[in-house]
Simulated assay, not measured.
Amino acid sequence: MEPELLHGVTDGVATVVLHHPAKRNAMTVAMWEALPPLLDTLAADPGVRALVLTGAGGTFCAGADISTLRVSPEDAQTLAVRAEEALAAFPKPTLAAVKGHCVGGGAQLAAACDLRFAEEDALFGVTPAKLGIVYPSSATRRLVSLVGPATAKYLLYSGELVDAERALRTGLVDEVLPAGGLDERVAEFTGVLLSRSRLTQAAAKEFANGRTDRDAHWAAQARGSGDTAEGVAAFLEGRPPRFSWTASG
Rank of each mutant, 00 (worst) to 15 (best):
P3M: 08
D11Y: 06
D11F: 01
A14M: 12
L18F: 15
H20T: 09
A22P: 01
A22Y: 09
M27R: 05
W32C: 06
P36L: 08
L39I: 08
L42Q: 13
A43H: 09
A44S: 15
G47T: 10
L53V: 13
G55K: 14
G55P: 01
C61Y: 01
G63M: 10
D65Y: 03
I66K: 08
S67R: 04
S67W: 04
T68V: 06
L69V: 13
S72V: 06
P73K: 11
V81R: 03
E84L: 13
E84A: 12
A88T: 02
A89T: 04
F90W: 09
F90Q: 04
P91T: 10
K92F: 05
T94K: 07
K99G: 13
K99F: 11
C102G: 08
V103L: 12
A107M: 13
A107H: 13
L109M: 04
A112D: 01
C113W: 01
D114P: 13
E120Q: 07
F124E: 02
G125D: 06
G125F: 12
V126C: 14
P128N: 13
A129W: 08
A129H: 05
K130A: 15
I133R: 13
I133F: 15
S137L: 08
S138T: 11
V144K: 08
V147Q: 09
T151G: 03
T151H: 14
A152E: 10
K153T: 13
Y154N: 12
L155A: 12
Y157N: 14
L161I: 03
L161P: 02
A164Q: 07
A164P: 11
A167T: 00
A167E: 10
D174V: 09
E175P: 01
V176T: 10
L177S: 09
P178D: 14
V186L: 01
A187P: 01
L193K: 10
L194K: 02
L194V: 00
S195V: 11
R198S: 04
T200A: 04
Q201G: 02
F207W: 07
A208G: 10
G210R: 04
G210Y: 10
R211M: 03
T212M: 14
D213E: 10
R214N: 15
R214D: 08
A220T: 12
S225Y: 03
S225R: 05
E230M: 03
A233V: 09
S244Y: 00
S244T: 14
T246M: 12
